[in-house]
Design a protein around this nucleic acid. Structure first.
Length: 110
DNA sequence: GTTCTCACA
DNA sequence: TGTGAGAA
């Protein structure tokens, strides 16, 4: 009955996205990347995960997951870890810019 | 459930 | 580059 002309699309859950933090198990499941590989990438410094205070369990936020996803897709295109990492970081620069604008506030002082 | 190291291919 | 196993 009520034709919702309001496009409740994807670009409004950023608050949730920023708070979304999952463990390596979830990330490996959604990204399809084995946990060993995720740790491996982090070991190289390609991705950065936050650690939980009590167990040291890695926590990956939306940006981290996006990074892992991006690297996986890039490598699938024929890029290597280093090459993929470079492109991903370039893209992350745009992401942070958009995130900052959408967040309204940038808790970032360089 | 997660983490770390060592070693191998 | 990515994985195996064991151990905490």
């Amino acid at each position: 009955m009520e034709p919702k002309d309001q496009p409740e699309h994807v670009l409004l859950d950023f608050d949730l996205l920023r708070k979304l933090v999952v463990g390596i198990g979830e990330v490996s499941d959604i990204t399809g990347v084995p946990q060993r590989q995720i740790r491996y990438w982090e070991e190289k410094g390609i991705i950065v995960s936050s650690k939980d205070g009590e167990g040291g369990t890695r926590k990956y936020d939306y940006l981290n997951i996006k990074k892992i996803l991006l690297v996986k897709e890039l490598m699938d295109d024929g890029f290597t870890l280093d090459a993929a990492a470079r492109k991903v970081e370039e893209r992350m620069r745009s992401m942070s810019d958009v995130f900052a604008k959408l967040a309204g506030r940038t808790p970032r002082e360089t």
